[in-house]
Every structure is written in structure tokens, then in C-alpha cells.
Design a binder for these strands. Structure first.
Lengths: 320, 320
DNA sequence: ATCTCAATGCTCAGATCGAGCAAAAGGAGG
DNA sequence: CCTCCTTTTGCTCGATCTGAGCATTGAGAT
């Protein structure tokens, strides 16, 4: 029972928008599963953030723009049971969220951008609630009666609330809670892996690609944070090119939130918050009336304490 | 430039309510300034949280209830400039926020509860904007013209926004931003200490007690988080006894937020959110009509996705 | 019985929000 | 040049929420 030093592992969730879909930067993990860029803190790193930037650039050649700290994970999930506790070497992972807009460039063999909905198909409700979401919820209900949660009388209620079933509304911000509940119920591949130490069985018909170690949990943390934060901070603009149309902005908001938005209300929102200003140019790509190009009004940061896009899902699937 | 291990320091911001004022648990720091309970992660600690709980209990005999992670601080602020960078030993501090309700018990010579407004007098706006707030803002304005921020044309605007002066509204959640701006402007004692390595000069007529190392920044982080989070999570009840009156709940909300609330609207809020239920008893202490006792309705956690007390300041000082 | 004080109940106007109708402005096809 | 199609943009309406203040209730004190 003595003081021990630990290795600091810096982990990056780097997000960009491609094809109206959020993508996360991944590298090949040691076991074949995709991993997040990461590396240990080194003595040459001036700060935690600069260490993170160095690792991401080295592993993916991607330069980072906006960066914020997400969460620090202990090594609770690393199983070293046959090691004497005093001998166990500790690793602490500090996870960061980064946003980049000009991602279209490189995509080496080493690293690749992947839609975050590959890992969380049940989180994409833009075209209505996906089937995988209902299937997962059903599996979860079985677990609340037969599984390890059979003793908990509230388990069923909690599942309904987190998945927005039966009266409860879908809350897009609860990505992390949903993942953790699925993990507990062993409805994600990583859970059985961590328990059994068994080799990765890709089948299981469980939806969503697994990731290396606890990286899918880290990604879920990032999604939750991002979905919550765009509502009161102008983070969306970190993902946009210098000038864009309001509809492109809306599509970015929808991509991140995973829900469909009401077009007219969306523009009313950004208009009355004065988040953008017109560039004077217009863009006619879509075969309809040309859209005015706008850019982010940086001055809002000096005017409103909490500028953001307070998205709310449309009742109907956002068809109009 | 090689991988280096680091010492993990666990820091606790433990909050309770006493005398309608938030108090933070402190221990004497090495330099006489109050410090937050803290200690290094040890090999016997199963998780980060359990390590934290162990240290707080050992140093203050206070058992912790609700605990959540706040932020992880690098050692950027530790000055080791005459040390070769490769030799510098790193310390990473992981800060936690903890809430306790039954604090009235122990208060050894070692540790003591202190009002958090001793450290942040300018943050208490319950009785109107305090003079120290205006004084600080004036000092900040000087800095934006004469000081190191003279080059930044937005510095004045940012100061106005963060301190709620001139059109801008006071945003009680911006405690951390305010502290960081004051630190940058060297309007808090710690800033000059960190720069000059000079002994602590208690005078300076700068408002607010300094704390050990960067602990006042950590406390500011906790206040910001808490003030934001009570609006969408039922954290207030972690600070309340099992049964209480609505007015006591309001006073707790006011103590945390540092703003006065409109009484009737406050009860409408908690009523229509169904956050509490009546116990059947009543309490007549105040010389007026006896107040009904209520308790937290734990079931709300299973009904609403984000139950909380969305406080907003009254225009007038909350006199009625 | 009356007074005082705090708890509780209620109303009202303004702001915000979800939803949908309708006009405007280009391109494509005749 | 006119018409149709498509998407942008403007606007309205009702429901809900919010800030603020007035009024009533219920207990102890005078």
C-alpha cells in the first residue's frame, strides 16, 4: 500500500463531418478492432494537450483544431487479477474531444475516418427510430427479467427511460447511459470480451462495430458531450467550412444530434441568436432556389453568454 | 523524450450547506493557506474514486456521499524551469466534486468547513451585486488598457460579458471563467505568487482568501459545475436532509447559485416537475404559517430524463 | 379578536416553441 | 417565354413556458 506512479495515456476522439455524417478518426488496434489515436504522455510534452496533439499528428497526420478534455478513466477495466495488487502497474487514460473541419485531406493506410454510427447504429434517429434500436431494447428487456438485473425492480423503468420507449421521449444526449446499460447487460461485444477474456467473436448479431479496449465507451462519452454542448456553445462552427448555407449547418446539427430538425424553426433559431452573418454570395447546387452563404459571427461570443443551437426533434420525421 | 510515469494526485472538493451558505471542506496547507483534501493514488486503491474517499476520510474523518469527477489538471502551473525537462517529475491532479448533507458532525483541528464565498466573495449575488464584484471589474478594466491585455481589443468586451456589466446579464455559471480572467490579470493573489515565487503577501487588498497551489481554481471549477448541473440533475437533494420545506430547498438553491430566486415561481417549478412529495408533517419555526415538510421523490429519476431546478434570478433582489 | 408573518394559491402579460402555409427564386423542359 | 419542379425563405397561429405580482391561508403573538 504505497504511492505508485502511473502511465498517463492520452486518447483522442477526433470528429469531423463527411457526407452529412459524423466521422471519427481511427487507427488499427492491436487486435484488429479499430482504435482511437492514443499514446503515453512523454517527458518532452509540455502540456497534456500538446502531448495529445503530437500523438494524433504522428499516428494520423491530422492536425487538430478545437480540443477539450472529456474524462479521465482509471484502469478499473484492465484485468490483472492474477497480479499482486501492489505490483500491478497502473494506467490512467485522459480522453479528449477534438473537432476538425478540413478533414477531406489525408486518409493514410494507417488511419481512417469512420462514421460514428458504424459503432452506434442505434443512435441515428434522423430517419426515424432505427430497427436496431428496438431490437436492442427488446434484448435489454429480457436482461431485466432473466439476466443479472432481475433483482432490480427499477431496471425495466430505467431501460424505458434511457431508450425512449413507452411514453418516454428519445433523449439524444443519453448516448453514454445507453452504452453503459448495454455493457452491463452484455449486449455489446466488449462486455463479454472483458469478462471471458475470450477471443473476439465478431458474430453475436449484436449491432455496432466493437472497438479496441474501452474506446467505444470513450466515443460514447464524446458523443454525449458533443450532443449536449452544441446547444449552448458554438461548437458546430468548428465542424463547418468558413462559409456555408443554413441548410448545411442544419445538416451538421442533425448529423451530430442524430435527430431530424424542423427547417424553418432551425433558421429562426440561428437568426434570432445572430449566430451567422451573410457573406453576400449565394450557392445554387441543389436544383432549387439558391441559398445564401453565411459565416459564423465570432462577435456573438462577446455578446451572449451561451450561444448555441438548441435543437429539438420534430415530431414528424422532419419530412418537410 | 521518453515515456515517463507520473504521480496521480487525487483532489476533493467536498461541499455541504451550513447556515444557508455552501461550505467547502479544507485542511491546512503546507504554506498556511487552506488546501483541499488530497493525496496520491496508491497501489492499494481499487479505483480512483475509492482512493479519493480514503484520503478524504483519513484527513478529515468525513465520509463522502455523492462523488463525480470534475477535471484533470496537468502540471503546467508547477514551475520547474531550472530543471531539465527530461528530469522533471510529473504530477497529474484529478479533481472530484463531492456532496454531503450531514456535515454538522466533525470538524477536527485538522480540517474545517469554510464558506466558499470566503474564497469568492464576488460570487455571492443573493443580496444584490456585492461591492467587491464591481471593484474587481474596475481593476480588470484597468488591466485591459494598461496591463498585459492592452493588445487584445476584445478584452474589455469579454470582461463585460463575464462579469455581467453594461447590458450583459450576470451569469452565475461563469465562476471559472471569471477566476481565470482574474488570474490572467493577476487580480488574485495566486497569480503573482506563481509568477514571482514570492512569499505570500496577504494584503494586496485583493478580495477573497487564496488557497494552496491551484486549489482555488479547482474550487471555481466545482462551483461552475455545480451551478450548471443543479438545473438538470437533482443534485440539490444530496445536500438536503431527508425531509425539508420548500423554502429550505429554495435557500439551498440560492446558496449554490449565489442569486436570489422568486419564491412563488420556485415552488411552481418543483411542483410541476414533481420533484418532491409531502411527508404529511409540517414545521413551524419561522413565526409564520407552518410549512409542509416534503422529501425527494426518487421516482422522478425514472420519469424525466433531466430533472432539476432551473433557477433564474429575480430582477428585483428577491425581496418578496 | 386582531395583528403579523411566512406559506401557499392564482392570474396575467410577454416570450418562446412546435408546426405548417405560402411566397420567392432559381433551373429544366417545352 | 411560359410552366413545372425544387429548395430557400418569410410569416402566422396556437400551445406552452416564464417573470412578476396580488391575494388568501394558517399558525403564533398581542
Amino acid at each position: 500500500m504505497s504511492e505508485t506512479d502511473a502511465t498517463i495515456n492520452l486518447v483522442a476522439v477526433v470528429i469531423t463531418i463527411r457526407d452529412r455524417t459524423p466521422h471519427v478518426l481511427t487507427v488499427p488496434g492491436p487486435d484488429g478492432r479499430p482504435a482511437l489515436p492514443s499514446g503515453p504522455l512523454q517527458s518532452g510534452h509540455r502540456t497534456l494537450q500538446s502531448g495529445l496533439r503530437a500523438w494524433v499528428e504522428r499516428q494520423t497526420r491530422q492536425k487538430l483544431g478545437y480540443v477539450e478534455q472529456l474524462y479521465t478513466f482509471g484502469d478499473r477495466h484492465v484485468r490483472l487479477e492474477n497480479t499482486a495488487p501492489d505490483m500491478a502497474h497502473r494506467t490512467i487514460s485522459i480522453a479528449y474531444l477534438a473537432l476538425v473541419s478540413g478533414s477531406d485531406e489525408v486518409n493514410s493506410a494507417e488511419s481512417s475516418w469512420r462514421s460514428w454510427y458504424e459503432f452506434f447504429p442505434w443512435e441515428d434517429h434522423r430517419g426515424g427510430r432505427p430497427k436496431s434500436c428496438d431490437r436492442l431494447f427488446e434484448a435489454l428487456l429480457d436482461w431485466t427479467t432473466d439476466g443479472s438485473a432481475a433483482g432490480d425492480p427499477n431496471a425495466k423503468e430505467r431501460a424505458r427511460l434511457t431508450f425512449g420507449v413507452g411514453g418516454a421521449e428519445w433523449d439524444e444526449e443519453m448516448t453514454l447511459e445507453r452504452y453503459e446499460m448495454l455493457y452491463e447487460a452484455e449486449k455489446v461485444v466488449e462486455a463479454s470480451l472483458d469478462r471471458d477474456l475470450a477471443p473476439w467473436r465478431a458474430q453475436e448479431d449484436l449491432p455496432g462495430l466493437p472497438m479496441h479496449a474501452d474506446h467505444r465507451r470513450v466515443l460514447a462519452t464524446a458523443i454525449s458531450r458533443l450532443r449536449a454542448k452544441i446547444k449552448y456553445r458554438p461548437l458546430l462552427f468548428e465542424l463547418m467550412p468558413p462559409s456555408f448555407t443554413l441548410f448545411q449547418l442544419q445538416q451538421t446539427a442533425e448529423a451530430i444530434s442524430g435527430i431530424a430538425l424542423h427547417k424553418q424553426n432551425f433558421r429562426r433559431l440561428v437568426a434570432q441568436q445572430r449566430l451567422v452573418e451573410e457573406t453576400g454570395e449565394a450557392l445554387s447546387l441543389t436544383g432549387g432556389r439558391p441559398a445564401k452563404l453565411v459565416r459564423f459571427r465570432k462577435e456573438v461570443m462577446l455578446e451572449r453568454p451561451a450561444p448555441g443551437v438548441r435543437v429539438r426533434a420534430t415530431r414528424r420525421g422532419g419530412l418537410t
